[in-house]
Design a protein around this nucleic acid. Structure first.
Lengths: 237, 237
DNA sequence: CTGCAAAATTGATCTGGGTCAACTGGGTTT
DNA sequence: AAACCCAGTTGACCCAGATCAATTTTGCAG
């Protein structure tokens, strides 16, 4: 699980060709700034299950997810896990106020990130309020998602949780893959359970029930959303 | 419940005498800026149970809580409620990215806020990156709290939830009242239940149980924390 | 003080989702 | 192709916390 051997590419990378440039923090930078910016970041690869950073680690760098999916989570001392969310390409990770990460992040499958030394990034941002504004915008959006998730965790039934998750995940994938009723689920059932505050068995049973009533079809590596309207209704949106 | 008659003070208010200046966003402003800033805000009073703003309302103003306690919450269509948190003096409310509030806020008891027109505040902030930085810092701190609360809602037992809440609320009150084992609880049992994802009966029973084992004493308008160490242990921090 | 309504507590019972355990099936190793 | 592994599914049973139903307590208005 621990990140042991990590490939770091030599710094021959150009932001202007970056696939996520228009989604991420970098979207706020102009051509001249990008040229300076690309010297700050270096691409780093992780394989399935590797930990990119851990809660309570001192934050030495921020990172921008380029490829792959990550799970963001917190652990209780006795090992109970709550997954806070799944990160997708374009997500910017590492902002905090204490100087330490306040959650952990693992690669689900292969992952590439663009890593920035905290100090250098901070200096670069110092003189560029538009970058700060962009980061603030992302933080506020994330807060809004966190609030929605609190409602889900505190007040929704298992079936509502699963339906809400499937619809929300489909939504999250739109900027990457375009809209589709075929929803890939790269994370395990255990990950889904820990995201929804359920057990793996309850998630599995709920999937089967949703399939039996014709709302979804369980396919290899994901689900197919057969009846989105019905799913919306079950989600009690 | 709806805010009907609201007292608005004439604008004879000076920031430099404001009780929360050093805690809140205003902490980032210098004397000259404060003089300009104080023309933007106006004090508004609310009485117990009044709604300060509602989810989905277009955001026309931000506000800074000056006195009193507020509950911040979201409702599901069928009336289930999740309280996201309790706001205390110094808290800055209203930041969002969609132009609409993404939660509702009620006064618990009498409340005074310092209200800023969104446009004017935005213009003021435009030229002052340090204010933006301060707001970002508050957003990031709030995100961290939201993540902790997700863990509580998704993975903790009723007893852990209640113990965690009491300790957390005591902590939150320190900047206002100083440290104390006498913890006022201005919110109702129902509010606590909706904050913790429990029912009012479970909260009540858990309080009684904690009292029976000598961890707390239930007093008028709050509790007294008799055995903080034991409470920490029950909270499974 | 009296009467009433809202908030809180307590008890009895029920149930959604957890726990424990067995089984299935696809993928990998030998 | 046999042996194994591990994620996922399914079934049987259980229990923490919800629900339902009285009380009891508190806060106030008259």
């Amino acid at each position: 699980m621990k990140s042991s051997l990590v490939a770091i590419e030599p710094n021959g990378h150009f932001c202007k060709e970056c696939s996520i440039r228009e989604f991420s923090v970098c979207a706020s930078l102009d051509a001249a700034e990008l040229r300076e910016f690309e010297h700050l970041g270096r691409r780093v690869h992780f394989t399935a299950g590797e930990t990119v950073f851990s809660e309570e680690d001192v934050t030495t760098s921020f990172c921008n997810l380029l490829e792959g999916v990550m799970r963001l989570y917190k652990l209780l001392p006795d090992g109970r896990r709550q997954i806070l969310g799944f990160a997708l390409p374009g997500d910017f990770l590492g902002m905090n106020v204490s100087g330490r990460h306040n959650f952990s992040a693992d690669a689900i499958g292969a992952v590439t990130v663009c890593q920035f030394a905290k100090a250098a990034f901070g200096r670069f941002m110092e003189a560029r309020p538009h970058l700060l504004r962009r980061i603030n915008e992302l933080a506020v959006r994330e807060l809004s998602q966190a609030r929605d998730h609190m409602v889900l965790l505190g007040r929704r039934s298992a079936e509502e949780k699963v339906a809400t998750f499937l619809l929300g995940w489909r939504e999250q994938l739109i900027p990457l893959n375009g809209p589709s009723n075929t929803v890939p689920l790269p994370m395990s059932r255990q990950d889904i359970a820990d995201y929804l505050g359920l057990t793996i068995e309850t998630v599995s049973r709920t999937f089967t029930r949703l399939e039996r009533v014709g709302v979804i079809e369980i396919i290899h590596g994901g689900i197919s959303l057969l009846d989105p309207a019905r799913a919306e209704a079950l989600a009690a949106a």
